[in-house]
């Protein structure tokens, strides 16, 4: 912007240039816009029900009131537990599957892989509505606990196991993609050296590939954790009421008759907390997973 005022060929820059001030002003303006909803969540959730009032919406609470967090937790706690029970196994299983698939696709190229891989990837872009109806029918037809008279007392439909299965299966494309891109960076020479020593498929994986996979696992685990925790469509359609994850419960909370905004904001905060913590603690890996989702590794 003001660069033309600097003689060409010099790198010396004046201490304060109007262009720099403009850059920071714009950045701070954007910063405020991005944090606006955060401010609103925090101030509203610390208000009492009586204090939540449209005319005082932007004002700080008169005192810190934890009542809304207690109320929100009371409603959401079982669903918070459901989400944890769902996310932990689903994430672990999809990370293991992704790692093995990625290893195969990156290091054991076989004929047809070039056609197979995009066909696998397509699965991560489809609108899940397009598989939902037969999926419900399928889950409903798989009986876990039959009754004595031949009817079914517990099927995969409306059950946490069904939800775990669904998230693992639809997580295969993205976890495979991330690991494939990660392992492609590993030089083939490393594996060839191992192969000369007589290691086979599993030996190479166990002694050479797996020990250097930690960053890949971190990216995949963060990605799957965030995706599954935040997921909503499967949560409201195939989980049933007993296995309902927290996102579905939060939506129910907001659909209740008397809108208690303070409780809703506290609920939103509780729902967001686990993924936010992951993001703050491991943000670097989070971004890597994000960009992997746009295919170019």
């Amino acid at each position: 912007m003001a660069a033309t005022s600097v003689p060409l060929g010099t790198t010396r820059r004046p201490a304060i240039k109007p262009g720099r001030i403009l850059i920071y002003a714009l950045l701070i303006l954007f910063l405020l816009l991005f944090l606006l909803p955060v401010y609103m969540v925090i101030i509203t959730s610390f208000k009492s029900f009586q204090e939540v009032d449209l005319s005082r919406m932007w004002q700080l609470p008169v005192s810190l009131n934890f009542e809304s967090f207690a109320r929100a937790w009371e409603v959401l706690a079982p669903n918070f537990a459901n989400s944890l029970l769902l996310v932990v196994p689903a994430t672990a299983i999809s990370a293991i599957i992704g790692s093995l698939n990625g290893y195969v696709l990156a290091k054991w190229r076989f004929p047809g892989a070039n056609i197979l891989f995009p066909l696998m990837l397509f699965g991560m872009f489809i609108p899940y509505q397009a598989i939902l109806i037969p999926l419900v029918q399928f889950l409903n037809s798989v009986c876990l606990v039959p009754n004595a008279d031949g009817t079914c007392s517990t099927s995969l439909y409306g059950n946490i196991f069904g939800l775990i299965l669904v998230h693992v299966v639809y997580g295969i494309p993205i976890t495979t993609l991330i690991f494939r891109n990660y392992y492609t960076e590993v030089p083939d020479e490393m594996l060839e050296a191992g192969a000369i020593d007589g290691s086979g498929f599993w030996g190479l994986y166990w002694y050479i590939v797996l020990p250097i996979s930690l960053p890949g696992f971190v990216v995949v685990i963060i990605w799957q954790f965030t995706q599954i925790w935040n997921e909503f469509l499967f949560g409201v359609t195939i989980a049933g009421s007993s296995a309902q994850p927290i996102t579905a419960a939060l939506q129910n909370l907001s659909g209740s008759q008397i809108v208690e905004w303070n409780v809703q904001m506290a609920g939103a905060f509780l729902t967001a907390l686990p993924t936010l913590l992951v993001y703050i603690l491991l943000g670097r890996f989070f971004i890597r997973g994000l960009l992997a989702g746009s295919i170019k590794g």
Binding site: L36, S55, W229, L250, W261, A268, A272
Partner: peptide, 26 residues
């Protein structure tokens, strides 16, 4: 970090919060 943090949230959380911000009289 701040520009990217909403990506870590669920669309449901985003929806609940913005619905409150979209109140017509405030």
């Amino acid at each position: 970090t701040i520009f990217l943090f909403p990506m870590a949230l669920s669309f449901v959380v985003t929806g609940v919060v913005w619905r409150w911000l979209f109140q017509q009289n405030s």
